[in-house]
Design a protein around this nucleic acid. Structure first.
Lengths: 277, 277
DNA sequence: CATACATTGACGAAGCGTTAGAGTCT
DNA sequence: CAGACTCTAACGCTTCGTCAATGTAT
């Protein structure tokens, strides 16, 4: 029977010397024989089988502790449960990664929107798709208070979103709403904040849909100028023979992308759905 | 301006006190004000913006160090690169997880095959699908040596598979081949090992395909009895008026699932493609 | 004897969680 | 004054990678 040194064993099994030493320390894979004088570890070729299994289980994402328990017990019956558990774990990780991917893509999109946006205040009619949002009513008008109050409302929205298990992804695009009825009365009051959610998101309490259609849009990068820009948007709508077809949406396209020092630094896209009157 | 205690700040931003303390220590988020007497940290509501950004970037999988660099520089231009880099990283993680998922599924399937297998030696004709494999020729007959030699050949196969960047997944189902020509001459010699690979795996050197078709199959759980079982398989084929249509395949359905103590402990499915003569 | 290979032990990394013992806010 | 809150400091977790100083195989 060959005596296999630690270096050769590592090479045979496509791992490293440190890993083998580590496995020895934690009792996961003890060398077949240890020289009493030198302390050198020697493995037998048969131990590759155990090491293969360790590496395979590790590849499946199972922790070394669990692997050890599994290998030290002779109970083979637990294997299917272990495997199923891993399958579930992998699925949830996959889902999480999908969300992350969406989030990154959304950030990239938002960043590009900011880069390519027309100058603040320029008004355009854009065709926008149907969108879904989770709406939170804070019962306080954000426009008659300071940024601080807005910030506290954001905190509440975040907490609600958390309770509702909305993934972090969605918190990238927040915004505020003014209902059409209020808008028609020239009341600029908003107590509602929202986050856009996936179009596949299941309908439930707080989830609303705004329809596909033409929107009068303009960009604005200052919280306190929003009202002015919104007023101009309304003037534009009446001057050009449109009428207001739905709720006013102030979408914060980017704030996380801009370095926040002492306060939030938002870039907003104001939108009012229109139709020819 | 409110003085927000660490506990309240944690609640507002949906994180923990320890996290905030950690961020303070590493200079990622310093409290607005620290009481000189008590050492108590107090935050301002405006700091939520920075914390939001930190949490969002963390969610994107960016390390705290990178986040710190990013937030401490005023250079906003690096953002797109950072985001793209994250997108790529997520994609590769996704791919890896998909592989893991396949691997787990394969293990579950194999386990079930073992559980539901007919008794060793019972012979059945089964319709098996087309399969792809990566074949490695070790130039030594595994059947005229000990298990140790087989083990060393496995090591070589593994190394080759590694060089070819075959994912670990595939190493779950290994096996050996005897070519039809050798089989017809009643020669039981195999120098070739293989691993099954995905059917989508690109064709290249060493990749072979075995066709869909009828196979005479039997199960065997002892390396040294394989030859006997294979002989009986051949007898069965001639006795029942079949003829050998292709290469003999010895598929190791499970060995990782069986606890290996001193040596590999294999459960094999022997297969010979047949057609009516 | 040269050279590659082996040893132990300790520290580091990422991002906090946890605990202990003591002080502070309301 | 009670009870909730906060402080610092230090260790723990996970899976090895990376020295450093030194001994061994061939």
């Amino acid at each position: 029977m060959d005596k296999i040194s630690i270096g050769r064993m590592a090479e045979l099994c496509q791992t490293t010397v440190q890993t083998l030493r580590h496995y020895d320390r934690i009792g996961l894979l003890k060398p077949d024989y240890v020289d009493e004088m030198s302390g050198y570890r020697y493995y037998s070729i048969g131990q590759c089988a155990r090491l293969d299994m360790i590496m395979y289980m590790k590849y499946l994402g199972i922790s070394l502790d669990t692997i050890k328990d599994r290998l030290d017990s002779d109970n083979i019956g637990i294997v299917p449960g272990l495997l199923q558990q891993q399958a579930d774990l992998i699925d949830s990780k996959l889902e999480q990664l999908q969300h992350m991917k969406q989030a990154v893509q959304l950030s990239i999109d938002n960043y590009n929107t900011v880069l390519n946006a027309p100058p603040n205040g320029r008004i355009e009619i854009q065709r926008l798709p149907e969108r879904k949002m989770y709406v939170y009513n804070g019962k306080i008008d954000i426009y008659s208070h300071t940024l601080d109050v807005f910030e506290y409302m954001l905190r509440e929205l975040r907490k609600q979103a958390n309770v509702r298990h909305l993934p972090m992804t969605y918190f990238c695009n927040v915004g505020s709403l003014i209902r059409r009825s209020a808008l028609l009365q020239h009341s600029f009051v908003s107590t509602e904040l929202f986050v856009f959610v996936n179009n596949e998101f299941p309908d439930s309490e707080g989830i609303e849909t705004i329809p596909e259609g033409d929107y009068a849009c303009t960009y604005c990068s200052d919280f306190f100028s929003e009202r002015d820009y919104a007023d101009r948007l309304r003037e534009y709508i009446t001057e050009h023979g449109y009428e207001i077809a739905g709720d006013y949406v102030c979408e914060v396209v980017a704030d996380l992308h801009i370095i926040p020092q002492q306060q939030r630094n938002m870039f907003m896209k104001l939108q009012i759905p229109v139709r020819k009157g």
